[in-house]
Design a binder for these strands. Structure first.
Lengths: 210, 210
DNA sequence: GTCTATAGCTGGATAGAC
DNA sequence: GTCTATCCAGCTATAGAC
């Protein structure tokens, strides 16, 4: 992918901002979340270490931009995956499957959203974007369970299960399986279904409206 | 920050090795897995930056020791928690609960086992110790499902769900709940039960315990 | 918008005295 | 086993030229 164009380090980029983000992602993919440095990303983008500061306030700003992109991309994916299903239970399962798929497709982006190590107080937008992801599950969960607290429980159960499968997949826990990705996807989906069924059994004496 | 505390920096420790590990854990607890440096740990232990090298080959060796300790401690906890239950399903639930509890009690140790960023090829012992954790679930899972592949699925489903709950708890996703820890524990346990029930429905014609 | 140059800092690791 | 001293590397960020 990266042609051996060893930039004489003097050319201007069409979109340095994007190039830096891309380089950062590669670094994270190769060396983990802690493996990203502004200096190395600059080198890979073929610019000096000073150039990034025209596009990002500091190192953290670049990371924050990536995390935000990660959330946005996830949201879009999950929304699409869920929209393809008519039934609430199917939507929850679709989410779980898409969650695992995203972790596999965009490993660096996925890891960053959980391990960027950013000061949450300094980037409140990210917290917002993160919680908006789980909100996608509110509609189907409420359709199934009505009550707020119990619906919330179902949302968390499905998401937690999917997250665990995703982490296990990336961490190599499933390495002994024939097709780890397919395995994780299937597991996440069927766990979502099982959790939905189990939780759906207990509407505590009908809808307890607040 | 603490420069006023000018350690005489000349005293000998009873157990520097342990003191360094402890300081490292505090660093991770405060600043995340990436927040650990040998230099800062040395400062906190009240010794020079050269001292650690008499106890650890390098920075990675200290981290590896911690990760190993984390696995050992987890194993012991899970074993104990499971031993208190007579039924396989209860054992799986007990594991899930204990898993969340460990993450809460030993946050730094828990985070390190997943984000130490160690070269797995260089520390094969850690991989071994890690997978031995899930093996604790094999016995109850096999009792419930007999078949190897299906039992494996149940093991992974329960563990993944527990892991997700633990991460959500630490990440603050449950911050809007009254008692996040209790919530996560309960959720992990009941999810384990739900998954056990669902997966237990399809035993390949072997003896299924009630 | 990008470069060169640089300041300032922190960390990992080693050598040799005690 | 611990210290002092030191080296070297790498990163972040800024200033000023073009």
């Amino acid at each position: 992918m990266n042609e051996s164009v060893k930039r004489p380090t003097g050319r201007h980029h069409g979109d340095l901002r994007r190039a830096l983000e891309q380089a950062a992602l590669e670094l994270v993919a190769e060396n983990g979340p802690g493996g990203f440095t502004l200096a190395e990303a600059s080198r890979r983008a073929g610019v000096s270490v000073a150039a990034p500061y025209k596009h990002f306030a500091d190192r953290g700003a670049l990371l924050a931009a990536l995390v935000l992109r990660g959330y946005t991309e996830q949201r879009e994916r999950y929304r699409t995956a869920m929209a393809a299903r008519p039934d609430p239970a199917g939507q929850l399962a679709a989410f779980a499957e898409a969650y695992v798929q995203f972790a596999a497709d965009q490993r660096a982006l996925f890891e960053l959203t959980f391990a960027a190590g950013l000061d949450k107080a300094r980037y409140p937008d990210l917290v917002e974007a993160g919680s908006s992801l789980l909100e996608l599950l509110d509609a189907p969960a409420r359709t199934l369970r009505g009550d707020g607290a119990q619906a919330r429980g179902l949302v968390l159960a499905v998401a937690a299960s999917a997250h665990g499968q995703a982490v296990f997949l990336l961490e190599g826990v499933l390495a002994d399986q024939p097709d780890p990705l397919a395995q994780a996807r299937r597991q996440a989906a069927s766990a979502a279904k099982a959790l939905t069924d189990a939780y759906g059994q207990t509407p505590p004496a009908s809808k307890t409206a607040p």
